[in-house]
Design a protein around this nucleic acid. Structure first.
Length: 978
DNA sequence: TTAAGAGCCTTTTTT
DNA sequence: AGGCTCTTAA
């Protein structure tokens, strides 16, 4: 690994021609534009490596900005794997916001910023603005005001310079609100998310020397930059003007956060010599998935045209499934997931499945169905760990410890636990403090010390409580927090422990939440764990440190508490690298936004109806379409869209999304595919896994297992008519197996037609789930055991040894290579058992070839898989009939003639260097714990880690327990005591 | 007058 | 599940 040439080869070997050009480009500005699954991030990462290794850039002089914490983490990991941890730490890599925070905390003094500034999160901002609107009797919606303020900041200086939309005079109240809001933030020494960027721009404009060292700036997901971020990018690059961006205008889904696709043109205009590279091959998805996705995105006539060439075969046709209700939709998804996993005989696991939602609220029926079936899942996006009540309380106390003047935090916790202080009193405090130009904390403190009597009426009892419970606690903690810095034995964890003890938080939770206090307390413990992780992570020390720039004095950022709080504010989700939990048995539920950049073998996109997508509140229909496009292009092998007849809420009928309605019947199958040989093998090829043997599949099928997607009527409008078609022919048999006890518990409100389904499904889950813990085939289990026994599979040197077949998109396939690394997985022995009914049915299925394949592939599917598709055939032709041509202006157009020569000949290759990390950022680990609980997270919202369900081990009892109903009547008469 | 409890409504997407 | 308003209790 020492000779530069070897390095060079290793790095470039994982790239195709266009990617290589992008990586090695000598142009100072490089713009990489490419569709989904074309290896954008891999290319960007490789360029970072290239710049450092080949061009000799100092790692600490390289700035890499991403949009999400997840993307940053993943890129960090990939770079670390190639360049080593030392190097990785030196690179200034993070989200725009976190990088800005680092600069502000190091150099903010120069623009008059107190280095102990706090970060006002969304909830804070909302609360502040709400109060301002109320107080000043501004006749505006707080949410509107908030959006306006944010937009004003995010557009950046360029926007205010050219007053294009000055036409519609902004409401004067908005400006008042803006002003008041900024003053409030300044008073409490806080910055909101946008301020981080705005102030950093100010800093870098006034003090360019702070970034005089920067040699290169690289931006991921460029299409999501907004005006102020564009400005920031330019300023970071001001010394050398070296910028590399990657992006895909079709995947711009953050317009509501003022992302501007126009930034792309702006870049090309302002940096004339920009080298444009487009990556055209899609390595991710089957051709039919791409077809259908392109059908969606091409409805946007104004979009920037790009070429997207499928590398893979047609594969199974995408499915558009219609269901009666959203409850049925959830149950169908459950059944289809089970069916797919069964029929793929261990090739696919739950972790290979994702359910992508337009809005987090849609997850309810799905979670409910998963819960009933005992499937475990993790939720990405949506409700956050840090948003939970009990967590916010702890954090607010900590913020108050950190920032005495944070009135907002104080106001929220002054009556938690209850101290007899209500709204009126709080308001009075706040107003009095404001008049006296002091913070509420000072006011209380002085009052209780008898230094200054408050004019607010405080009953003696209340005063005592304030004094002993609140003030003493905070003062003590502050003393403790001061010791954090000088490396004494005090830790963050001590701090939090002390806090929960002083507050008697456990008892408080028990009293306040008799129903689920255990869960909540466990969450608090989880926060303690997070604090511990944070403290221990060596990253904290190095990562947040900016390189020394000669002669520039930095404020040392050694305030552990402040760092922790900032970290919390800027991390949307708690870190998910959780070593102890087996993720292979969990499927993923995610918002579409949070799924960007990720991929899964199987993707479900439920609720594809008008009002959900496009969302009823959305302003930009094109963006909604792009959102659907992003969701669909996450899928590698199987893509399912579904749509209920009625919306989740209730009675109102719902219409299929206009984005697909025009071609729905042509392009989609009405129900899930038959998993016959060709479908399975085509998926195996795409995923670079070994297709299961027939025996592996059928030997594990439960006796009554239905190999087809026939548990739900294809046309839910017309249930009765399907009776003859065999849809329900098996249902009666199943009913008998139903666990008989719970009938009385059935919810009465359920519509009669729902009843049929749920009975069927519950029964189905009763025999599959209970008999197969973890719902993993025995074959897969044995395979996993065998692999787990083989020690040292993950030698660190593997990436060096793995150059055997170099010309590969390692990053794209690394995910899957992992599974098969080191040769074929050991095949489990084939026990010869009696032929079961399901086996017979399976054989019947096998003899029914290619129902789901298009004619072209039906002829010789195997040959095609082995050799890859002929490039000529691969020229993408959307079903609209118009030929999709490369943009002739682009030099890359010629590439399409021989785009993926390197792929056609090499079916399995070991992963190389940075390809080893999974696209999802989930570290690989031995699959050793299949039997672990399958429903660790029955009803967790928020991004989960270390599911805190504790509780008893899974049992049939819990399975039978109706999944926590969504609107349950609480068990009557909670014994509220005083 | 203030605080606590009960019931109703409404949920976009994220740093 | 949380926020909001209305009602009830002190």
């Amino acid at each position: 690994m020492s000779a530069p040439n070897a390095l060079e080869n290793t790095l470039l070997a994982s790239l195709n021609e266009a990617q290589r050009r992008a990586v090695t480009s000598n142009a100072s500005t490089v713009a990489i534009l490419a569709g989904p699954g074309s290896g954008k991030t891999h290319t960007l990462t490789s360029r970072v490596v290239w710049l450092i290794q080949q061009m000799g850039y100092e790692p600490s002089n390289v700035v890499v900005a991403t949009f999400t914490v997840k993307a940053a983490r993943e890129m960090k990991q990939r770079i670390g794997k190639t360049l080593g941890p030392e190097c990785e730490k030196k690179i200034v890599l993070g989200t725009f916001h976190s990088i800005a925070r680092r600069y502000l905390s190091a150099y903010g003094k120069r623009i008059g910023l107190d280095s102990k500034f706090g970060i006002a999160d969304d909830a804070d901002s909302r609360a502040i603005i709400q109060r301002i609107c109320k107080r000043h009797d501004l006749n505006i919606e707080p949410s509107v005001a908030k959006a306006w303020i944010s937009k004003t900041k995010a557009r950046g200086p360029a926007a205010s310079a050219n007053p294009t939309n000055k036409k519609q005079q902004d409401h004067p109240s908005l400006k008042i609100c803006y002003k008041e809001y900024q003053e409030h933030l300044a008073r409490s020494n806080q910055l909101d998310y946008d301020d981080l960027l705005v102030r950093c721009v100010e800093l870098l404009q006034k003090h360019p020397s702070c970034v005089s060292n920067v040699e290169a700036v690289l931006i991921d997901e460029y299409q999501d930059t907004n005006g102020i971020q564009y400005e920031l990018m330019k300023l970071f690059a001001q010394a050398r003007q070296r910028i590399t961006i990657v992006g895909d205008p079709d995947q711009s889904i953050y317009g509501w956060r003022s992302a501007e696709i126009r930034n792309l043109y702006r870049l090309l205009r302002e940096y004339k010599n920009t080298h444009e590279v487009s990556l055209q091959e899609n390595y991710r998805s089957s051709q039919s998935i791409l077809d259908v996705s392109l059908n969606v995105i091409q409805q946007d006539k104004k979009r920037y045209q790009k070429v997207l060439l499928p590398v893979h075969s047609k594969g199974a046709r995408p499915v558009l499934r219609k269901l009666k209700s959203s409850a049925a939709e959830g149950e169908w998804i459950v059944s289809e997931v089970k069916r797919a996993i069964m029929m793929f005989g261990g090739m696919l696991k739950y972790e290979d499945v994702a359910i992508l939602l337009r809005s987090a609220a849609l997850s309810r029926q799905i979670e409910s169905a998963l819960g009933k079936a005992g499937m475990s899942y993790r939720m990405i996006g949506g409700h956050k760990f840090y948003d939970r009540k009990e967590i916010k309380v702890v954090l607010d106390y900590l913020r108050l410890v950190h920032q005495p003047d944070n009135n907002d935090a104080l106001a929220r916790i002054i009556n938690v636990p209850r101290r007899g202080i209500g709204e009126a009193t709080i308001k009075s405090f706040v107003e009095e403090a404001e008049k006296a130009k002091m913070s509420v904390w000072d006011l209380l403190w002085k009052h209780c010390r008898g230094i200054r009597k408050s004019s607010t009426n405080i009953r003696i009892k209340v005063e005592q409580k304030l004094n002993t419970e609140l003030i003493r606690t905070i003062v003590n903690l502050r003393q403790k927090a001061d010791k954090l810095k000088d490396g004494t034995a005090v830790t963050l964890v001590d701090l939090v422990d002390q806090l929960t003890k002083d507050l008697n938080l456990k008892k408080y939770l028990e009293e306040e939440y008799p129903e689920d206090h255990e869960q909540r307390w466990a969450n608090v413990q989880e926060l303690v764990n997070l604090a511990r992780d944070f403290e221990l992570s060596t990253a904290r020390l190095d990562e947040d440190t900016l390189p020394e720039v000669d002669g520039l004095e930095q404020t040392k950022d050694d305030d552990a508490l402040g760092q922790f709080l900032a970290n919390v504010a800027l991390a949307s989700d708690a870190q998910i690298d959780d070593a102890e939990k087996d993720k292979s048995s969990m499927l993923t539920i995610s918002t579409i936004h949070a799924a960007k950049g990720l991929e899964w073998p199987i993707v479900f996109v439920p609720a594809v109806y008008t009002g959900s997508i496009p969302h009823s509140r959305a302003e930009d229909e094109d963006e909604e379409r792009r959102l659907l496009y992003v969701a669909m292009t996450r899928a590698q092998a199987l893509l399912y869209l579904s749509c209920p007849l009625y919306s989740s809420q209730g009675q109102s009928k719902v219409e299929l999304s206009p984005f697909i309605s025009s071609f729905a019947s042509k392009a989609f199958e009405p129900k899930g595919p038959s998993f016959n040989r060709s479908v399975v093998e085509s998926a195996a090829t795409i995923l670079r896994r070994d297709a299961p043997k027939d025996e592996d599949v059928f030997k594990n099928l439960p006796p009554m297992f239905s190999p087809e997607d026939d548990l739900f009527p294809v046309d839910p409008n017309n249930v009765d008519a399907t009776e003859g078609s065999g849809q329900y022919s098996r249902a009666p048999k199943r009913q008998r197996m139903s666990s008989g006890g719970d009938d009385g518990q059935e919810t009465a409100e359920e519509k009669p037609w729902q009843r049929e389904y749920s009975t069927t499904m519950e029964t189905a889950s009763a025999f599959t789930m209970s008999s197969l813990p973890g719902f993993v085939t025995a074959g897969a289990h044995r395979e996993a055991l065998a692999r787990a026994e083989k020690p040292l599979q993950k030698q660190p040197a593997s990436r060096i040894a793995s150059t055997r077949r170099p010309a590969d998109q390692a990053s794209l396939f690394g995910f899957f290579n992992k599974e098969t690394k080191g040769g074929d997985p050991p095949k489990p022995p084939q026990p010869k058992g009696p032929i079961s009914m399901s086996e017979a049915r399976y054989h019947r299925l096998l003899s029914n070839p290619g129902r789901n394949l298009r004619p072209e592939t039906e002829a010789e599917p195997l040959a095609e898989h082995k050799t890859g598709i002929d490039p000529v055939l691969a020229k993408h032709k959307p079903s609209t009939g118009q030929v999709f041509r490369p943009n002739p202006a682009k030099p890359e157009a010629t590439d399409s003639k021989r785009p993926y020569a390197c792929f056609s000949s090499s079916p399995t290759r070991p992963s190389s260097a940075d390809g080893a990390s999974r696209p999802s950022g989930i570290p690989d680990k031995p699959i050793a714990s299949f039997h672990e609980t399958t429903f660790t997270t029955m009803r967790t919202t928020g991004s989960i880690r270390r599911p805190v369900g504790l509780g008893p081990p899974p049992s049939m009892d819990r399975l039978r327990k109706p999944f926590k109903p969504l609107t349950i009547n609480r068990p009557s008469g909670p014994p509220s005591k005083k």
